[in-house]
Design a protein around this nucleic acid. Structure first.
Lengths: 136, 136
DNA sequence: AAAACTTTGCAATACTGTTGCACGTACTTA
DNA sequence: TAAGTACGTGCAACAGTATTGCAAAGTTTT
């Protein structure tokens, strides 16, 4: 019988290799978004580039989304099951200025803005920074 | 008689050296936000690190603000005269996915969000991406 | 003009992300 | 099942941006 992880991967047309299962489970276990480096730390002897490509595959298949929170390292977090990373799926992210953790605020969609004449909207990145509940 | 640039710099307590005047004028001339590299290109033989430190000085004194638009290079743009880079001064930035130029939407403040219990708001980065009027 | 401080240039380095290549595993098909 | 093909992984090298230490040059103060 196939595991839950395998099903999730196959749902998004990703062949479930050992590596991919592990990376997926690391992301699932965390409530927060993780950087490539942070994921790498969870392994003993795995190549950065392998994880990098695993994340790229995940991203290409809408299993995860990436967040540039301004800390210098891109972070990654699981998408919702039905997410296709379209504008309507966008949500706000919160970076704690103290602990550096980045959280997905999945219940807070990125507000639609009325742009000036001639500007079209394709995508957005909205990161709110402050102090998280754990750090006060 | 002192030039306009000197006054602007002194208004923000920045000693107006030749380098600083030039960097300021480059930023002023442009409508858009510029990366360190783009500024470097406007000179013949100036050190990256010097510009870097010049920009840092400008930023520490609220003369410019930096924008991380997700392109990998931080960009810089002049603040309004009375800006102190507090939450109320924040505005949206627009990155054109075609030409890569980043514009300050100074008339569009970053919307205040009601964060979940326990999260405090200190700062925000809101970048909207799409196609700009020049590229359609 | 000497001392103290600031700014600049050079060189080196850190960090993150990214790619080429070779090897091995898994899948396909005859 | 054996040969052929496609895919995934590890290693190594590299690219781009940001950043720092140090010394020389310039500026301000006394």
């Amino acid at each position: 019988m196939k595991g839950k992880t395998d099903k999730k991967l196959e749902q998004k047309n990703i062949k479930p290799t050992a590596m991919r299962q592990l990376v997926y489970e690391i992301l699932e276990k965390q409530k927060k978004a993780l950087s490539l480096y942070e994921i790498e730390q969870q392994f003993d002897n795995v190549e950065r580039s392998t994880i990098f490509r695993t994340l790229k595959t995940f991203q290409d298949n809408y299993l995860i989304h990436s967040i540039d929170d301004g800390t210098g390292a891109v972070k990654y977090a699981l998408c919702d099951d039905d997410c296709t990373c379209k504008p309507d799926d966008l949500h706000i992210h919160f970076l704690c200025n103290k602990c550096g953790q980045t959280h997905c605020m999945k219940d807070m969609p990125v507000p639609k803005m009325d742009l000036a004449e001639g500007f079209s909207f394709e995508n957005a990145n909205f990161v709110v920074k402050g102090i998280c509940p754990n750090c006060r």
